[in-house]
Design a protein around this nucleic acid. Structure first.
Lengths: 227, 227
DNA sequence: ATTTTTTATACTGTATACAAAATGCTTGCA
DNA sequence: TGCAAGCATTTTGTATACAGTATAAAAAAT
């Protein structure tokens, strides 16, 4: 049955050598489905139905749901199964407050411990992002943007910090993904990013923290309307 | 919560209103076992064995393990099962850095939004802690101490903040639980707590943040030797 | 007509059974 | 004696089956 599944999926087998367990794959698959809005907030998840849809039995699917429940992407209602978690505007605002604090912390640490290569890599990511901005490629821009924020956190070389940041980021991704900002605000965000990268290159911790602070506060303003 | 009563009259949770599902109970049970050192770091978890020990079958146990894996308390090695996660000294230090940042953030917010009753409740907790200190009741002291730190975060009224704080706190609990500090350091910790509560009562955000900063930095110093 | 009760259906929660993978041990051979 | 290969045991990974529960619909009574 498992071998059939691999053939049916086809594309998934390339990277992982099918080394990862099935429930692990389901976790990433479902996470993507939730983030991309394939499974909508408040929607109830029927295990048999979704299992057949994915070509797996209920057992690994349920295990994956438990994992995602701990991540906070789904909610487990006793004897009524899993529901895609819905976030209120206050929830999102609270998350962004924490995210902002975490990124500021990461930025401060990064200024002290990051390698020159790491910073250079972030600069090139930033350049790529600007290209996408000028080409008005929103989706590509969005993806690289995420990579930059994740990259700053990664530079701090603090695994738990990166982990909790990723945890919250995965929750707001769904929101941000939807939010399409106007041209002038978009330009403002790019300018903020430029200053962020500059501060990082100068290893100026306080300036970097301040820039991240305003950038992420503005980010909330940009997304507030769509929540 | 209600399951404690259930456990009192009989070990099986069948007949009564077991509001929480079985895997949910197993999660809390295993979490306690890990924190209290019943399951030691690096120890491999044999599903059938542990299942029989707890009187449950493998299925809900596995679901519980997936949940704990997402929490970071156990590690899932593909086709070799679950292992209680072992943390290096750097891991713990990194966690405490993040915890410190989160508590400082919570403290700042709490000064602005906490209710007077909430602050008063924390003061009485503090008084209880001092009593335990004077009676040299280490375990009781430790428990109330945890409640105070959790309580400060709770005052901020920010669910995601409380969540990630609790996540990291559950990981370092195991360490701190072991660490027995000397009398003079213990006295220092109590004094720091007194200043923290005072700053909170004065709603002096910056002082509170500074006191939390030094308190938690000292906390790392106190625990460093035993990691 | 409305409310309550009953019944049917579908879904979740748990257990068990089966298949695949890995580890350890024994045996054979150099 | 040392090493390797193969077999056996153990353990995980997955599927399926069964039991319990909630929901919804239909029927009966007020």
């Amino acid at each position: 049955m498992a071998s059939e599944m691999v053939e049916a999926n086809g594309r998934r087998t390339v990277a992982t050598i099918s080394r990862q367990s099935l429930h692990g794959e389901i976790v990433t698959r479902l996470r993507d489905m939730i983030i991309e809005g394939d499974l909508q907030p408040g929607e109830r998840i029927y295990e048999t139905q979704l299992g057949e849809e994915l070509g797996v039995s209920r057992t690994p699917l349920r295990e994956a749901l438990k994992f995602l429940a701990s991540e906070g992407l789904v909610e487990l209602v006793p004897s009524r199964g899993a529901v895609v978690k819905r976030f209120s505007a206050k929830d999102v605002e609270d998350m962004l407050i924490v995210l902002r604090s975490l990124e500021m912390l990461a930025g401060r640490i990064a200024c002290a411990v990051a390698s020159d290569e790491g910073i250079a890599r972030l600069r090139s990511l930033h350049d790529a992002m600007v290209k996408h901005y000028k080409a008005a490629e929103r989706l590509e821009y969005y993806k690289v943007n995420q990579q930059i924020h994740t990259g700053i956190v990664a530079l701090a070389n603090n695994a738990p910090l990166a982990e909790v940041h990723g945890l919250l980021q995965s929750r707001v991704k769904r929101i941000r993904f939807i939010g399409h900002e106007g041209a002038e605000r978009w330009a403002g965000a790019v300018a903020e990013h430029e200053r962020i990268i500059a501060a990082l290159e100068a290893r100026d911790a306080e300036t970097l923290a301040r820039e991240l602070d305003t950038h992420l506060a503005n980010g909330w303003e940009r997304v507030k309307s769509v929540v």
